[in-house]
Amino acid sequence: MLEPEKEKGAYAALNRILIVEDEATIARLIEVSLKRAGYECTVAHDGLAAADLIEAHDFDLALLDIMLPGLDGYELLDYLRPMGTPVIFITAKTTTKDRVRGLSLGADDYLVKPFAVEELLARVEAVLRRTGRGGRLLQAFGVTLDAVGRTVTRADGSPVELTPREFALLEQLLRNRGAALYRDVLYERVWGAELADTRTLDLHIQRLRKKLGWQDHQIETVYRVGYRLRKED
């Protein structure tokens, strides 16, 4: 229903992420966001189900709520630690004491509710990068973007020279592949300010298309919305 198709070769490595959250709405939100960003997700709503899944599969990352029925987040952490699976706690327990406890028990990061989805994605990526489970390469139409090395390479291996803003813009398009992004959101995320007039953004899109050689509506202009990086046909 809401699953973006898994394109072959769209991403260098498809990370498997376990989501353990008893609030259905939030679990769904996280699942959708992560799948859109290109991760494979499995959801469990309580500690015991999560424990079974952990035993059955290998995950690259686990997002754990702390207050769970059955086993709580801390106990699941004990389960996951010997496997070396990195863990991010997602929880409403915000006090410094709780955060310190979570981190000293061995969690790799700690995200507090309510969180912005953007922040969740960034932290997931950071943890995966840190634990060596994903040199995040984003690919589309023969172009590869290395989020860490900040390089863009063509299919033949030749580098593409992009300004920092162009790079950031391409990254946003790649991360939200297939979604029609609103202009003001794009502008905010790349320039960090409110959209004053659209010309700068449009110009940058034009330049990107030119530099990447994407003249066939790879980057689609969506009427009255903004831009979308098309999914591979």
Partner: peptide
């Protein structure tokens, strides 16, 4: 969290 998350989604794309 749910409201913010989904609203953000709708706002973004």
């Amino acid at each position: 969290t749910g409201i913010l998350g989904y609203a953000d989604l709708l706002r973004t794309m």
